[in-house]
Amino acid sequence: MIESVDLRRLQVLRLVHRHGTVTAAADVLHLTPSAVSHQLRQLARETGVALLEPDGRRVRLTPAGRALVAHADALHAGWERARAELAAYADGSSASLRMCGFPSAVAGLLAPAAARLRAADPGLAVHVAEEEPADALDRLLAGETDIAVAVLGGATLPLDDAKFGRRPVLAEPFDLIVPAGHPLAGREETALGHAADEPWVLAAAGSCDLYEVAVTACSAAGFTPRVAHHARDYAAVSALVACGLGVALIPRTATVPTRHAVARLPLRDAPTRRVLACVRLGSDRRPAIARGLAALEEAGRDLVSLPEGPDRR
């Protein structure tokens, strides 16, 4: 019979479930692997059931462990809703909001949203941090940030993850970039199929979702990209393109350094990615978080209305 369970140990189990290893969960929690293992052994004693079983070099939850995580998700969502209700009774004088996201999201969404929030409410302390998508969601789950901007899909943010609430903020198209002297460079827009015979600059397979976006879009256009170089940083990608070493797809919010002589072409058949603002499930009712989500939605609408064209940097 279960008489009591330490909720902090449930959080440890949630993170092990997310990452599949004790070491990765320990990194997120800023603990040693032995401390995490101890917490899990204590939780197993409290519940009276086996929670983990080996899976090669990783671990996986037993059926009892998965059932417990589902209940833990519901408990944490309920606690977030309670925090939101209690926040409504506070005077808001010490309110703060922490937001993070990947680099182009910081530039296109988080920075404008933070400026909007500061102008509307100087008493709200807003902090923005640049984080890779998986790290941003880990920080969110660990309670180290309030809003994480991420891209829908893939292993980073699967559709069925019940730990997070999601708010769409941007459906972002990809542009084709080519060297400034390329035959396509003078066009106002083009189709992806016109770059079928070009060498391509792509992220390495499995390194990020950008690779899957490019390969899927090219396949839909009727060709497989001939990969000449691998890069994922947009400055590195545009440098390779500017030197005539290939063409590439980059998101609309990604900035190309002005020193890189490339032409940026909107595509008639542009692939898109869905950018979401993620919160811990139930926390979106907290006033500061609700204001942050609204500001990000406004920033997303502003981005959609930006002028497009080959000369935009």
Rank of each mutant, 00 (worst) to 15 (best):
H17Q: 15
F102H: 14
P112T: 13
A142C: 02
L296N: 09
K163N: 05
R81D: 09
G20S: 07
P266W: 02
A35W: 05
F174Q: 00
A261D: 07
A270S: 12
P307T: 06
L276C: 11
A217V: 00
R259T: 15
A204W: 06
G309E: 02
H76D: 14
R66P: 09
V241P: 00
A155G: 11
R45N: 15
A235Q: 03
H127T: 14
V49Y: 11
G222I: 08
A195F: 12
P33G: 04
H76V: 12
R291S: 15
H71R: 12
P310H: 08
A125L: 10
R167K: 12
R139H: 12
I2L: 08
L296M: 15
A25K: 02
A196C: 11
L68A: 05
A114Y: 07
T62P: 11
A114P: 03
D197C: 06
F102D: 11
A119V: 09
G246D: 03
E189M: 10
R268C: 15
R57L: 13
T272P: 01
H194T: 13
R313T: 02
A142K: 03
L276H: 12
P133F: 06
V59A: 07
R167I: 10
A72R: 01
A299P: 09
W200A: 10
A134E: 11
S37M: 14
V22T: 14
F223Y: 15
V227H: 06
R139A: 13
P33Y: 02
P287S: 12
V5P: 01
A136N: 05
L265H: 02
Y234A: 05
A217Q: 04
S219D: 15
V128M: 11
V237L: 03
S305K: 09
P257Y: 02
L281E: 14
L152K: 07
G206K: 03
D197R: 14
L210I: 03
E144D: 14
A114N: 06
A217W: 00
V22Q: 13
D91I: 04
P271H: 01
S207D: 07
R268Q: 14
L293R: 09
F102Q: 09
P266I: 01
V59P: 05
A228W: 03
S283D: 13
D269M: 08
V256C: 01
G244D: 04
R8F: 07
A217K: 00
A26Y: 03
G65F: 10
A277S: 10
W79P: 03
R98T: 10
L184A: 07
L140S: 01
